[in-house]
Amino acid sequence: MQLESPRFQLVLLARSITDDAYNDLYSKGYRYDSFTSMWQLIALLHHHHPHLVHLHFYGIGHPYTFIARCFCSHVVLTMHNSPPQGYQITPWRRIKQKLLGLPLARLCAISPFIQQWLSQFMAQEKIALINNGINLSRFKYEKIPPMTAKLRCFYVGSLSAEKGLHYLLALFLDPRLSRIAQLDIFGDGELKEQVKLAANQTQSINFHGRSTQIEQDLKQAHIVLMPSCWQEAFGYVAVEAMAVGRPVVAEPIGGLADLFVDQQQGWYVHFEQSDQVQNLLRLLYSQSDTLEAISVAARKRVEQEYDIQRQITQTHKMYTSLLDS
């Protein structure tokens, strides 16, 4: 809805969208088509004869990329998914991925981490780095609340093993830390009962379940903890927290490792080293001025790198360069 050029006809094909998104599109004169099968996609492409097709949430080599190439010379694919755990780029896989990527004019990487992964088997000129963005009008900056009895640490996300939640539960069950810090957990998932059990064992852990207004909840935090054990492609929660002005303490892995500069807009720690994490949290508890300075810097980082307007501008520029070539 925010692309500027009137020269292009844009058609949105999606499995589903929300009612609000549909109403927004409809109010601005856009049409929305959904498809549930390969044959419906073929019929839509045959009807519209597009000059460019941009696919999301499909992998390299998905049949839809080959179908789209039959009807369109410019096929773009944005890589949102993390690389498979333990996936090794062997010479055979490098050749295979290059062949599967032949229908694609561009591969969009949503983070430098994904860009680096794609560059192992795809020509550099085919890869476009366009960082994911967020709507800054939704996540408005607010000063960190005053430090009262405890440092309020938030975890927001899936309650699953790969998110490293077990590190946080062990950390905040330790009475040495629970005297100066508390953990608020927002989310749902397979470890829900384990989280509830830990919350019942100590007053330093509070479980809130899934939130529908996380942008408001985040404003009650002092910091946000992200102890992921797997290579996330990006790290939306971290960027949303930074946009609100809540510094992030994260494991330097995958896309999380690229989001900010350590000790300037947040902190990187290894959560399996509990003493390292405890020492940092004690330091932040005693130095509220440091928290406030990092809070401001974190917001500026998001404004510079992760504003959705920047993502839109870069996407539009990529479309234009392809269509004008």
Rank of each mutant, 00 (worst) to 15 (best):
K196H: 03
F234L: 05
S204E: 03
Q264N: 15
C70T: 11
L322D: 01
G245R: 03
F172Q: 01
Q287D: 15
S228W: 02
K140L: 06
L259C: 10
K192G: 04
D275V: 12
L165T: 02
H222C: 08
H222S: 03
Q273K: 14
I308T: 13
G29Q: 07
E142A: 09
Q309A: 15
I130Q: 11
A198S: 13
Q309Y: 14
R282E: 13
H316M: 13
L280S: 05
Q9G: 04
I253H: 00
G61F: 02
D19T: 13
S288R: 05
L225W: 11
A243G: 11
P63G: 04
N131S: 10
D174E: 06
V261T: 15
L45Y: 08
S295C: 08
E251D: 04
T78K: 09
Q216F: 01
S288D: 02
D20P: 00
R69G: 01
V237A: 14
M122N: 08
V261L: 12
Y64R: 05
L104I: 13
H56F: 09
S27Q: 08
S158P: 00
S34Y: 03
E193Y: 00
L13F: 13
L168T: 03
I185R: 03
F113M: 12
A123N: 08
A238F: 04
Y58S: 14
P175R: 08
W267H: 06
F172P: 05
H80L: 04
P103F: 12
S321D: 13
P112A: 12
I205C: 03
T212I: 11
L52N: 03
E142L: 04
G187D: 04
R7C: 00
A123V: 01
V296Y: 12
P252K: 08
N23I: 04
L225C: 10
K96C: 04
L118K: 03
K300D: 15
G29M: 10
S325P: 00
L183W: 06
F260S: 07
F8C: 01
V53N: 02
V156L: 14
Q120A: 07
S228V: 02
P91N: 08
T65G: 00
S82E: 07
L102Y: 10
R31N: 07
Y58R: 14
T313K: 12
T202L: 02
A128M: 13
L13Y: 10
G101T: 10
E251T: 15
V53M: 06
K143H: 02
T148C: 02
Y285A: 12
C229M: 12
G254D: 10
R138Q: 15
Q278M: 14
V224D: 02
D33W: 09
L323V: 08
D289S: 14
G59F: 09
N206G: 03
P83E: 04
Q278I: 11
Q287W: 00
P112Y: 08
I89V: 11
G29D: 02
L197E: 13
Y319F: 09
P146G: 05
L165S: 03
